[in-house]
Design a protein around this nucleic acid. Structure first.
Length: 463
DNA sequence: GATCCGTGGCA
DNA sequence: TTGCCAAGGAT
């Protein structure tokens, strides 16, 4: 590639961008905070999806100081449905750092920007070039695709090393004094013309010297190895209803501080063992009509009939919940379902059975499932949840004191002699991460989409 | 380097 | 319907 050809590319692309760029909310001005927020939201997320979130977010948190001083649950709620929720928490952590270390102003300093939580190589380049017009490359998926085609590069863009190489190329192409516009021009071309599936070469401003097109490879470039398919997990969730002062409310819990869907709220649910996983995946979100009662076949699996009375005594517990507790699987966390599987040929009864056993063992939560409610798939990048939802009646919380008395040791372990342990448990307080909510609480707590839909359906059906 | 992190649109 | 993938980063 001659410098002349590179110069042509940059000049023509920049010219095209200035005439064709979209009018997007984060292009209103070059406020580095606004640029920063937009770049975080746009990570792995389409422009059309981001726009309404961005408008709401900027209205609620118009400055780094405003974001830094906001309650974290408010920030997470504002991010609800956008995905990759650690972005929201990292962004707020970054805002707090900007407030305390840089006086509330995003610094015009590459190292300082790069050090902010959630800001990697791409976002650093984007902020430095767009907000400050510094000649830093900003190489995302669009840029790798555009440059792979234009320069007919056959390096696998799925490999991290490829991005590093393309960054060097991209840096060499930045026109003097136009870093921000040029970097956005590359991405804009990738989004509007040089698209992944059917590149619009006929309207491309740099078509004439595109090496990929001249080689007839515009449809095979860029080279990108396939990601491995997501694993499938069957999850059994519970719509747990209360009585008396809890009537009309549902029991929800908050997830741990890190990991999948960190700090989001959800219905209590457990991972189903392989023996209970669906033979066929739930093709679509669905509600069975009518909701099937699981009581009938469940007596064999240890379920009490619906009118067996309140589960308050040890005797009631024996009736309402399986006498045989789940065993602790060797590699941790997966309940053994052999007993339940053998006891019932009805998959839903076995699932309901397993649900009550697992909630008891994992959470100290005693409930009585009464019917299957519905099912839905929830797709992550690397996991697919086949969510089987059951209605259940709240029983009580097992007290921790009784648990330690029978030698239930560390976290996540099941009582060594759980049959006796269950009988020994008394009623205890609810764990801190659980809460009873009505429909109005949906406005303040952040739920992953799958639970938003289930809860909305549930409360709509009550009307 | 490989894996973990969400969600929705679309051919 | 299924697979792909979108302005990536942290570990």
């Amino acid at each position: 590639m001659t410098t002349e050809a590179a110069s042509y590319f940059s000049r023509e692309l920049l010219h095209w961008y200035l005439a064709n760029k979209r009018d997007l909310p984060w292009r209103m001005n070059r406020d580095p905070y606004r640029v920063w927020v937009s770049e975080i939201m746009l990570q792995q997320t389409r422009v059309d999806t981001v726009i309404p979130y961005y408008e709401r977010f900027m209205e609620k948190f118009p400055s780094a100081a405003a974001l830094a001083n906001a309650p974290e649950p408010d920030v997470l709620k504002c991010w609800e449905g956008l995905g990759y929720y650690s972005r929201a928490r990292n962004l707020q952590a970054g805002a707090r750092e900007v407030l305390t270390r840089h006086g509330g102003i995003v610094p015009d300093d590459k190292e300082a920007v790069s050090a902010l939580r959630g800001v990697g190589p791409y976002t650093t380049g984007a902020i430095m070039s767009i907000a400050f017009n510094r000649p830093e490359p900003a190489v995302d998926g669009n840029v790798m695709r555009v440059l792979s085609r234009y320069f007919c590069l056959e390096e696998d863009i799925a490999k991290p090393a490829t991005r590093v190489n393309i960054e060097k190329l991209a840096a060499s192409l930045i026109p003097e004094g136009s870093a921000g516009d040029f970097n956005q021009a590359l991405m804009e071309l990738g989004a509007l013309v040089c698209t992944p599936k059917s590149p619009g070469c006929l309207t491309c401003p740099v078509m004439m010297h595109c090496e990929g097109r001249m080689a007839g490879k515009e449809h095979v470039l860029p080279i990108k190895t396939k990601a491995k398919p997501p694993r499938r997990e069957t999850r059994i969730a519970a719509l747990i209803t209360g009585s008396a002062e809890l009537a009309g409310k549902l029991l929800v819990r908050q997830r741990p501080e890190s990991g999948l869907l960190a700090q989001m709220w959800e219905l209590p649910h457990v991972l189903a063992p392989e023996a209970l996983a669906a033979a066929a995946p739930a093709k679509r979100r669905g509600r069975g009509k009518p909701a099937a009662a699981v009581g009938e076949a469940s007596s064999a699996a240890g379920f009490a009939a619906a009118d067996d009375g309140v589960m308050e005594t040890a005797a009631g517990l024996e009736l309402a919940f399986p006498a045989e507790p789940a065993a602790n699987h060797a590699d941790g966390g997966v309940l053994n379902v052999q007993a339940a599987g053998a006891a019932s040929t009805d998959r839903r009864s076995a699932m309901a059975d397993f649900l009550s056993r697992a909630l008891s063992a994992e959470e100290g939560l005693l409930v009585r499932p009464d019917s299957w409610w519905g099912e839905t798939d929830h797709v992550f990048s690397h996991i697919v949840w086949d969510m089987q939802v059951y209605r259940a009646e709240f029983g009580f919380w097992q007290s921790e004191a009784a648990g330690t008395a029978v030698g239930s040791g560390g976290t996540g372990e099941y009582p060594a002699a759980a049959s006796e342990a269950l009988a020994a448990y008394g009623e205890g307080p609810a764990p801190a991460n659980y809460r009873w909510i009505g429909p109005e609480e949906m406005r303040t707590l952040a739920f992953p989409n799958v639970f938003v839909r289930i809860l909305q359906d549930y409360w709509r059906d009550l009307d």
